[in-house]
């Protein structure tokens, strides 16, 4: 089955990104495809390459990058939401790309299921 995931909250502040990541990982382990993860609202902050958590904490941004590299997950950051919050190509972490809201609608159309994680 083809899954789409929406992440509406920033890393560390809210559990949404952790839940979304663990869901995505479990879906892949079960043989499903995670076609796209769309980051919206404060969720765009998951794509900041300036993120530096303490060493004994999980690295939420790098974890997404790794998932994208290993399983060809398309990580899309909403351009309007990103620019509002100071996320640009300059500080975009590897594996993420900035694009329009149409990418979210497209995920709704093309995926068998779209699961939202937010507040």
């Amino acid at each position: 089955m083809k899954f789409g995931i929406v992440v509406n909250e920033g890393p560390y502040q809210h559990q949404a990104s952790d839940s979304a990541y663990l869901f995505a990982k479990a879906a892949i382990e079960k043989g499903h495809e995670v076609w796209r993860v769309f980051f919206y609202h404060d969720g765009v902050n998951n794509a900041s390459k300036l993120t530096e958590p303490p060493q004994d904490d999980r690295h939420i941004v790098n974890r997404w990058t790794k998932l994208a590299e290993e399983h060809k997950v398309d990580l899309v950051v909403c351009v309007a939401a990103a620019l509002r919050r100071g996320i640009k190509e300059d500080n975009l972490a590897q594996g993420f790309r900035i694009s329009g809201l149409g990418q979210l609608v497209e995920a709704g159309i093309k995926c068998d299921r779209l699961v939202t994680f937010g507040d």
């Binding site: 919206y40 309007a80 809201l101 149409g102 979210l104 609608v105 497209e106 709704g108 159309i109």
Partner: peptide, 11 residues
Amino acid sequence: EVVLITAAFDQ
């Protein structure tokens, strides 16, 4: 903003 974009997709 999402709603307005969705309108362009004929859903």
